[in-house]
């Protein structure tokens, strides 16, 4: 080829340049190192996809390349943790939570090792890469593993806050994060507390409880509906386990006409919606519940934004589902 490449061209190792949203994971880890925490990081051949290349460049001695060996990566991280070092290991959520599930249960959770598992490009965010690369089961699987926290930040700044908060959390954690292109919800620096939801809006007609990339769409949908006279609240349930039961119960009990809707980039079975349903049923709260997400099916092939529109996980889609639900 003659001459310079078009500015629109990019190649894999330059992903950070075209997607600065990838920097949040490394930023969070670099913060931990600077604060004096003994952390390491590793990835299974995806350091440019999850942005850990920045951490690896900053602290090469603290970064471990695991090749394409996800199960080995998880078990090795467990061994590292026994020696007083806290490892963050990252790969696509589909491979981490499904391929290495048994290693996570035995070597991390049951063995009580404070490993931080980072499943990125979760949900259907890998679009046309197809079902092998989608993770619409990971919340259900990970939250059924005892002693494992499950955290699904709404955006990059909240991920950084959650990573900072993890320094004081001694149990293992599964972080479920997107592809680094999630619209920003938290323009100001967010706080994150394990076991605490963040209530953005209070409503007395409908409360939308969302996690991950769905939070942004839920907020836009609620604002639009509220502008038309509805009363719609939004709770960001970034910490799916331990779950903020009080926040759910408080919202559900706020008014007699209250309905609850959950939104997640996940199968409607077993994920955030399942967790909320369990709380409501446990407490005998007879509130109408709509669990919105992927309806127990495998996603079509398409670019992610097209899929979000198709599956009604963008603001317009969430709004249409919510309006139909309260009609």
């Amino acid at each position: 080829m003659n001459g310079p490449l078009s500015p629109n061209s990019w190649q894999y190792r330059g992903l950070n340049a075209v997607n600065p949203g990838l920097d949040h994971l490394s930023n969070g880890l670099i913060d931990l190192v600077k604060a004096g925490h003994n952390v390491m990081a590793g990835s299974a051949d995806l350091q440019y996809s999850n942005g850990l290349n920045r951490f690896a460049a900053a602290y090469p001695d603290r970064y471990i390349s695991f090749g394409i060996s996800e199960q080995n990566m998880v078990s090795t991280a467990a061994g590292i943790a026994t020696c007083g070092v806290v490892p963050f290991v990252a790969t696509f959520a589909s491979f981490l939570a499904l391929l290495a599930c048994e290693q996570i249960r035995m070597d991390i959770a049951y063995s009580a090792q404070p490993v931080r598992l980072v499943g990125h490009h979760t949900g259907i965010s890998l679009g046309f890469y197809g079902t092998s690369h989608h993770a619409t089961e990971d919340i259900a699987i990970m939250r059924s593993i005892a002693d494992l926290a499950v955290v699904s930040p709404a955006d990059g700044p909240q991920l950084e806050a959650a990573i900072r908060a993890s320094a004081d959390y001694d149990k293992p954690i599964y972080f479920r994060i997107g592809r680094g292109r999630d619209p920003v919800v938290y323009k100001e620096t967010p706080t994150f507390k394990f076991g605490k939801a963040h209530e953005h809006l209070k409503g007395d007609e409908l409360t939308i409880i969302a996690c991950g990339m769905a939070v942004h769409g839920a907020l836009e949908a609620a604002s639009a509906m509220n502008a038309e006279g509805h009363s719609v609240g939004v709770i960001d349930m970034a910490c799916i386990k331990p779950l903020d039961r009080d926040a759910i119960l408080e919202a559900a009990s706020r008014s007699k006409k209250m309905k609850i809707m959950t939104v997640e980039e996940h199968n409607v079975l077993g994920g955030l919606g399942g967790a909320v349903a369990e709380v409501l049923a446990d407490e005998g709260i007879g509130v109408k519940l709509k669990r919105h997400g992927i309806y127990d099916e495998y996603s079509l092939i398409a670019p992610p934004t097209h899929l979000y529109a198709h599956y009604k996980l963008d603001a317009a889609g969430i709004r249409s589902v919510a309006e139909a639900f309260i009609a």
Partner: peptide, 12 residues
Amino acid sequence: HALSNALGMVLA
């Protein structure tokens, strides 16, 4: 799993 666990101890 055990060889990976052991490797982690060596890397740490």
